[in-house]
Amino acid sequence: MTADLIAVVLLLAVAAYACGGGTDYGAGFWDLTAGGTERGRRPRWLIDHAMAPVWEVNNVWLIFVLVIMWTGFPVLFQTVFSAMWLPLALAAMGLVLRGAGFAFRKPTQRLAGRRLYGALFAVASVVTPFFLGAAVGGVASGRAARGTEASADAWANPTSVMFGLVAIATTALLGAVFLTGDARRFDAPDLVGYFRLRALSALAVLTVLAVITGFVTHEDSPHVWRGLTHGLGLLFVVLAGVAALATAWLLLRTPSAWLRVAAVAVVACAVIAWGMAQRPYLIPTSLTVADAAGAPATLTWLAIVTLVALVVVMPAVALLYWLDTHGELEELTEAELRSGSGADGEGAPPGG
């Protein structure tokens, strides 16, 4: 019972990272495709301002996923990281390069340096979700079975390739949807239309890829296919489809908070559908939840620690997002710093 509970927590953590981290990766995707220096200046300006306050916090969910895997399901952790160490290492490298590129490109004074760091940020934002998706595909197809040695087949198979492409399209959708709302918040009507069009395009591409992935899964991962077409798996597939239709409808209207909710629901329901489709396996059809679980005492303490962490972390994360969406985390301009309007509220620098 405890093992099943921790497995649900793991699935929800993966969904949270897919939504939170996916939004950041999507912003990087649109940074990569924004065009040259002059053409891409405005979109990149919005991406920088929208991401700056919150981009690091989304990696909390990735750490949470790794801790639960390592502690709660050590056999799963060992199996996945042994069979697919290469794509996971490339994804980790992408995370590091992406963070470095985003952190250093803005303060760098030389144009060549800004271009270099910007390229690192943008390219890594596409490469990282692809390899993470490919690793998930290796799990879903059952190729990362217990005792499997590392090989290209574990992650360079049809299911993995499609999962990787779906991951990129998913991040592109989330990034464009959130940037559409941010463009409205920053009073940039030209960018509202710019990112709305890209969100609709990403949704169309994602829909096509999802259909193709269904056909690939039918042949390459029959257990997951059956789970997606029956029971809870089918329910969440339908919910993801409904959320996708709602997202398309809301994109054609004035952007609102409901647009973000609908887009997040698409991704969250899709991830949960995959998890429900694999039941009772963590790796179909070789490793069940019960077989992969750690010691009962460890699982009990992990459940307690998880509850405490959620009570402490969730309100802080919610507050951070609230402050960001209400414009409370904007950087002070040079004029504000000189006037002291952001320092002591009196219009003069402290001690002046």
Rank of each mutant, 00 (worst) to 15 (best):
P53N: 13
V54G: 06
P53A: 09
V80N: 00
T79R: 09
P53K: 12
V60R: 05
M93P: 01
T71N: 01
W61Y: 11
R98Y: 03
G72C: 01
A83R: 05
P53Q: 08
F77M: 09
V67F: 07
L88Y: 04
G94N: 09
E56T: 09
A92K: 01
V57L: 15
V67Y: 04
G94V: 10
V96E: 06
V75S: 01
V57G: 12
I47P: 09
W85L: 01
W70E: 00
V65F: 11
G101E: 15
P87W: 00
A103K: 14
T79F: 00
V67S: 04
N58T: 13
I63G: 14
A100I: 14
S82R: 07
A52T: 13
W70Y: 14
G101V: 08
L88E: 08
P53H: 12
L76M: 14
F77R: 08
N58H: 11
V80T: 04
H49C: 01
A52Y: 12
V80R: 02
D48T: 14
L90I: 14
G72F: 05
V57P: 07
L90F: 11
Q78C: 00
V65P: 09
H49G: 10
Q78T: 09
W61A: 15
F77L: 03
F77S: 13
F73T: 07
T71F: 02
G72K: 02
V67K: 04
T71P: 01
V75E: 09
F81N: 00
P74G: 04
I47E: 11
G99S: 09
I63V: 15
G94Q: 03
P74I: 10
A89S: 15
L88T: 07
F102M: 09
T79L: 02
F102W: 14
A103S: 15
V54Q: 07
I68C: 12
L86W: 06
L62M: 13
W85G: 00
M93W: 11
A103H: 15
W70A: 10
M51E: 11
V54K: 13
H49R: 15
G94C: 12
W55M: 10
F73R: 02
G99K: 06
L86S: 02
M93Y: 03
V75Y: 01
I68E: 05
W70D: 00
A91T: 03
F77I: 10
A103L: 05
L88D: 06
R98S: 05
A103D: 13
W55V: 02
V60I: 14
G99C: 05
L90N: 05
L97C: 01
H49M: 12
V96A: 10
V75G: 00
G99T: 03
V54L: 12
M51N: 15
M84H: 04
L86M: 12
N58S: 10
W70I: 04
P87M: 02
G72D: 03
M69S: 09
T79K: 05
V60D: 11
A103R: 13
L66K: 07
M84I: 04
M69Y: 02
V57E: 09
L62K: 10
F102Q: 06
V80F: 00
S82T: 13
P87G: 01
G99H: 06
H49L: 13
N58Q: 10
L66C: 13
F73P: 01
I63D: 03
N59V: 06
S82L: 04
V54M: 11
V75C: 00
